[in-house]
């Protein structure tokens, strides 16, 4: 009787404890963690297994458990750079930025071409409010990667501009390099367009739009964007021409695309712009 009550109380306690837990590893992850825990109990301090289990914890957002595993792996083998890097990532995600930076510096001192460590270092520097120091990190990542991600080019450009608002030309040069290496990626092309507009380079901005449009079946929005660039530059007459070209492109769309809400909204927007910007008040000469 007494045993049975204890059993049920213990079962209830276990169930309640489970209900209150944060999301835990599931399915195969959970099984892997259980298996690794058993192996670690048999070989205490095995860095390989600690690293492996820490990664599982980290992927499930259990940063505290991940930290303990990476720390244990590192204290058993101070040359275990993967553990140091992962500890740095945990520290970053726990907002312990100075600790993260120190660990990343140690990793990069031992492995200067470790791209993941360098990407993380740039990230931590930005989060630490030190954008100027992040820029050379991005340069290095781009130089060392066989195929850098579009994100790296974007981040470098945005960091440059955050650091120095007049650096748009240098930022643009970097984005241009990205387009050369990765192809006509719209995330980079659109950013380049933004930079041209920021630099007041109207014709260059228009050329960017033309380059983006070249590969597209639907041009109406890009023609409208050409109009906006021209309007902002005071070239009202040219802007009107572009808005009219955009309307014509809308008219040429197949009916199923022409009568959508988005197309109708664009048409209204264009008609409104044409109405409030009558022809003839161009402030600077047409090209």
């Amino acid at each position: 009787m007494r045993l049975s009550r204890t059993f049920w109380l213990a079962t209830l306690a276990c169930l309640l404890a489970r209900v209150g837990q944060p999301a835990q590893a599931h399915g195969p992850d959970h099984e892997v963690i259980v298996a690794l825990t058993a192996e670690i109990a048999r070989n205490p301090g095995d860095p390989e297994r600690l690293l492996h289990r820490g990664e599982r914890y980290r992927s499930h957002g259990d940063l505290a458990s991940a930290r303990l595993d990476f720390q244990a792996a590192l204290s058993n083998n101070p040359a275990c750079h993967p553990a140091r890097l992962r500890l740095a990532l945990v520290a970053r995600d726990q907002e312990k930025l100075p600790e993260s930076l120190q660990l990343l510096d140690q990793t990069l001192a031992a492995q200067p071409t470790n791209l993941l460590a360098r990407v993380a270092r740039a990230d931590v520097l930005i989060r630490s409010g030190r954008p100027g120091e992040a820029i050379p990190e991005y340069d290095r990542i781009i130089a060392d990667s066989p195929q850098p991600r579009p994100d790296v080019f974007l981040s470098r450009s945005r960091t440059l501009l955050a650091h120095d608002t007049n650096a748009w030309a240098r930022a643009l040069e970097g984005v241009e390099d990205g387009i050369r290496r990765l192809g006509p990626v719209p995330s980079l092309q659109l950013h380049a367009l933004e930079l041209e507009e920021r630099g007041g380079r109207v014709d260059a901005a228009l050329a960017r739009i033309d380059a983006i449009m070249a590969g597209m079946d639907r041009r109406e929005r890009w023609l409208a964007r050409r109009g906006d660039v021209l309007l902002a530059a005071g070239r009202t007459r040219d802007a009107r021409t572009e808005y009219q070209r955009s309307l014509a492109a809308l008219d040429r769309l197949p009916e199923r695309l022409r009568r959508t809400i988005a197309s109708e909204e664009l048409r209204q927007e264009l008609e409104a712009k044409l109405a409030v910007n009558p022809s003839g008040n161009q402030t600077s000469p047409s090209r």
């Binding site: 994100d151 080019f153 974007l154 990626v185 719209p186 980079l188 079946d217």
Partner: peptide, 14 residues
């Protein structure tokens, strides 16, 4: 970059 690409990609879709 993924979000910017997705916006442009879907806008170009016919």
């Amino acid at each position: 970059a993924m979000a910017a690409w997705l916006r442009a990609d879907l806008a170009a879709n016919t």
